[in-house]
Write a protein that binds this DNA or RNA. Structure first.
Lengths: 134, 134
DNA sequence: GCTTGACCTTCCAATAATGGGAACCCGCAG
DNA sequence: CTGCGGGTTCCCATTATTGGAAGGTCAAGC
C-alpha cells in the first residue's frame, strides 16, 4: 500500500485500526481534513491518510485526548518542530495520568481497608456501609 | 438538623455536598425518590434525605457508579442485608479500579520511556512522534 | 405596595469518545 | 432482477456533571 493507493473507509479502517465510525467522527470534528469523495460520494483515503489514522490510534491508546492529538499531529507534520514541545505535551499528559492514578489508588486503598473489616457473611453489620453513611 | 427539618434544595445541597443540579438529576433518574413539594412547588428535603445524599456523595467519591450506588442504597436500607453482598460489590469495584489503574500505568510507563529518550530541545527528531507514527 | 435579589422551577445543551441502528444509495455477481 | 456487502447521513445512547435561559417565588427594604 503506497502513498497513492486509494481506498474506501472500510479498508482504511481495517488498515489503520480506527473504526469507520470514528474516522467519520474525526473528520466531522476537524481532527483530520475532509476526505475527498469518489464519483459516488464515497470517502477515499490514501496510504498517507491511513498513516495519520494509525498515529491517532496510537496516541489514543496512550490516553492522549483529541485536543492533545491535534497538537501532536501539528508537531508531527512540522519538520521544524522543536522536540521540546512534544516532550512538554508528553510530560503534561504523564502528569495527568499520575493524577488519575493517584485518585484511583486512594479510592482503592480506602475501599480495600473497609472491605478488609467487613465480615462478608450473612450478618448485616458492615463497616463499608457505615463509612458511606458517614 | 433533626430528621424532621424541612429544607429547600439549596440547603440540602449545602448540607449534603451534592449540588442542587445533581439532586434534581438523581431524582430524575430514580436514584432517590421524588421529593415532596411545598405549596409553591419547591422541593422539600428532610434530614434523612440529606443523609441519603451524603451517602451517595461518599459512594461517588469512592468511584462507585450510579448503578452500583443504587445497589448500595438498597442494601443500606435493608436491615437484614447480608454483609457479604456489600463486600462483593466493594470487591468487584476494587477489581474495576485495579483494571483502570493498570491501564493508566501501562500508558504512563510507555510514555515515560519514550519521553526519557526525547532530547526535548529545539531539534526536531523525537522518539515520541516516531513511536506514534509507528 | 413595589422593587430587588436570592432562590426556586423546567427545559435544553454541552462535555469526551464511541457504539448502535435506521433509511437509503451503489456496484457487482448470480 | 435480486441480493449482498459496501458506502452515506442522521439520530440516539452511554456516564456524570455543568451551564444557561426563561420564568415563578419569597423575604427584605423603602
Amino acid at each position: 500500500m503506497d502513498m497513492t493507493t486509494s481506498m474506501n473507509i472500510g479498508e482504511a479502517a481495517r488498515h489503520s485500526g480506527v473504526s469507520a465510525k470514528m474516522i467519520r467522527h474525526y473528520e466531522e470534528i476537524g481532527l483530520i481534513p475532509k476526505a475527498s469523495r469518489s464519483y459516488s460520494n464515497y470517502r477515499t483515503y490514501s496510504g498517507k491518510d491511513v498513516h495519520t489514522l494509525r498515529f491517532i490510534r496510537q496516541a489514543r491508546s496512550l490516553g492522549f485526548s483529541i485536543k492533545q492529538i491535534e497538537q501532536l499531529l501539528g508537531l508531527w507534520r512540522n519538520q521544524r518542530r522543536p522536540s521540546g514541545k512534544v516532550k512538554a505535551l508528553a510530560l503534561a499528559h504523564i502528569a495527568e495520568l499520575d493524577a488519575r492514578i493517584s485518585e484511583l489508588e486512594a479510592m482503592k486503598r480506602t475501599l480495600g481497608a473497609l472491605a478488609a473489616h467487613c465480615h462478608g457473611d450473612d450478618r448485616p453489620e458492615c463497616p463499608i456501609l457505615d463509612r458511606l453513611a458517614g
